[in-house]
Design a protein around this nucleic acid. Structure first.
Lengths: 206, 206
DNA sequence: TGTTAATGACTGTCCAGTCAGTCATATTGA
DNA sequence: TCAATATGACTGACTGGACAGTCATTAACA
């Protein structure tokens, strides 16, 4: 049996290839059901090679889910510097970024993986809470606080429970990864409807 | 080595005990990481005994998640027969039931398990979509449709995306099972705030 | 005494992680 | 320019442990 042709690579590149393959495998079958050989095969290399780049399966997983800390927060966080931008615009931008950068990419599976495997990897959950959730909520509190003060919110109490604004985004990901195959959900419509519900109608004009 | 004392049981009862033990184990560690011996030990029996009641691990899991089809839908479904009840009351009742019967019981873990392991068990996902999601959304469509017609909704378009009403409930479960240990979320407040946001204020009195 | 629930040692399989050996490429020196 | 040599990325057969599922034996009850 002839050995497959060997191909040398820039380690940096190899690493990225392995991570990409791992994302596909973990997203498809979860942590436990993914075999290191699957990841290797998908990356077009032998099993041993994976271990030249990652010490073990758990670390491969953790590196993967930690590396997704997307630039979304940075962009939205930057927007709130400008106090004149209406809160609705900021939240709408957040949803758009979320849709384009997470929901419509492979990253949506990562989010499901964190929900799914989180309790098995407290390190990951803690990282996400600290780096993503806390920061995201802080930004939302600022934005919604201003909106409440300006009368942009139909119900000012929303500013006290920013998790409520994240709920529709969470729903779109859960639906997309579980039920989309059985019944379509228009994520854009869901998010837009929510925006139209929490914010007072613009201008009252037409 | 003395064998542990054997205790005979009504098969019906044994079955229930095993399911209870399995729920605790699966909720704690997920499907893959749960050993059949763990389930047996937790139920106070030997491993072989589990196999007298369930053919294999997968079937045990499926029976478990399928058997949670709670009476919530029945109760709420019954309420919509009476057209005079305000939509807000119906949705509020739905949230209360959800909170008492799912969020504050072991079942909250079942919900997380379905999110987590769903893609590995299409049978389970399909069952949930067909038996729970579809029926729940149908009820919500009726209730929200009426509400829109009566002017009870701040934004009538909500009636077209009933998933939006499920989103806050989903958020409370996800938060409770992942982040509650790091940061408390007042589920009641979140749900109440949402109700106050989508429904027009009552009477305008006070 | 016969019937059946219950037991737990056992078996076969699967897979994470290892490591001795291989080969593509780079470097050296003529 | 072209061997000769060195380097380390890459390979995949192998090992050790874990665990799902089995079944011969044992104990409980009628």
């Amino acid at each position: 049996m002839p050995e497959k042709k060997r191909e040398r690579r820039d380690p940096e590149l190899r690493r990225a290839e392995i991570l990409k393959a791992a994302l596909a495998c973990f997203a498809e079958r979860g942590f436990a059901a993914t075999r290191m050989e699957d990841v290797a095969a998908r990356a077009g290399i032998a099993k041993g090679t994976v271990y030249l780049h990652f010490p073990d399966k758990e670390r491969l997983f953790i590196e993967l889910v930690s590396g997704i800390a997307s630039p979304i927060l940075g962009e939205v966080g930057g927007m709130i510097q400008n106090e004149t931008i209406p809160a609705r615009t900021v939240v709408s931008m957040f949803y758009s970024l979320f849709k384009r950068e997470v929901l419509e990419t492979e990253r949506r599976h990562m989010l499901r993986l964190i929900l799914a495997e989180g309790p098995m990897f407290p390190v990951v959950t803690e990282f996400y809470h600290r780096e993503i959730i806390t920061k995201g909520l802080a930004i939302l509190r600022v934005v919604l606080g201003r909106a409440a003060a300006r009368g942009e919110l139909r119900n000012p109490a929303v500013a006290e429970v920013p998790q409520l604004v994240m709920a529709p985004a969470l729903m779109t990901v859960v639906w997309a990864t579980l039920f989309e195959g059985y019944e379509h959900l228009d994520a854009q419509k869901l998010l837009d409807t929510f925006l139209n519900t929490i914010f007072v109608p613009e201008g009252g004009a037409k």
